[in-house]
Amino acid sequence: MPSVTVCPFPDLQSVALEHPAVIASDWELNGEERPGAMLKGWDYGTDVTASRRIKLDVPAARIASGLSANSTLRVAVLWSTGAGFEVRELGFSSRVQLSGDDPRVVEVSLVIPGERLASTFALTTEIVLEARGTRSGQSSAIEIGSRLWSDDVTIALEGSGPRLPVVLVELDPPDSAWSLRSTAEWLYSHPSAAIHVLVNRRREDICRALLSRPPDEKDRLVRSALKFDIGRQMIERALDDQDFDDDAAFGPQTSGEAIRQRLRIVFPGLSIEEVRAFRLTERERYERQLQASHQLFVTAQ
């Protein structure tokens, strides 16, 4: 699905038209259509061939964007990968004129070297302004590279682990219970790659509560406390991070996007900036709302 961003100019989805300005087919990966969220059989020796068709309804694109017929757009695809460090490269790029009434069809095709992939990869398709024509609408995009349409998809190459890996380690001080470890790029990474819950193995009571099957009432209380505290710590870290805002371009299945969606549920109707202000000015209510949304100590099965 196309991502929703707040733009200072009309993009190709600004106006609800009878016919959408952009119709993008699903990706075809190594000859397989709609391969789902995982590419089976990949190894370092297997390059990934990705292709899709982007159809641009030119009149609709002009109406939606406010750009004139002598404007030019660029269709580009970036691929990214990483399981810690992330790299992102331009894999395909092609110009499209906005003149005439015939639809433009761009056959996107790129080959990603298998040796350069790790764990997952993402494909981001962007349609941006290449050149703004004369007589374009006053509010239309001006800057080269202005994003007019975008979508992305993430493909797993090696399967996925638990969403938040829990690891038993020795923590200090010895009576501490657990802590959350996140990488510097955690907001832009899948949670399983960027966040670890470290549980103090010296605390046998806590380890037992987390490992017991089935859990008793005390175990459920411990689990509830863990779930609340980890959820709260993740929200706090995100709010303390200046990169975390409503416009940040977090990809799907990233921690940043997950927390952003979570905040919309916990604090409905508030922008992230407003949540920050709420935390600052009404701390007690903020904390109570977090407790309620995480169902702290609600242990009914």
Partner: peptide, 27 residues
Amino acid sequence: TAGDVGEPAGRGARSGLVWNKVTELLR
């Protein structure tokens, strides 16, 4: 970059059909 062969800005439009032929040839 793959596909980066588009017409320069300012030239006349190509029809979708011609565009398809160009991209197919490149593929």
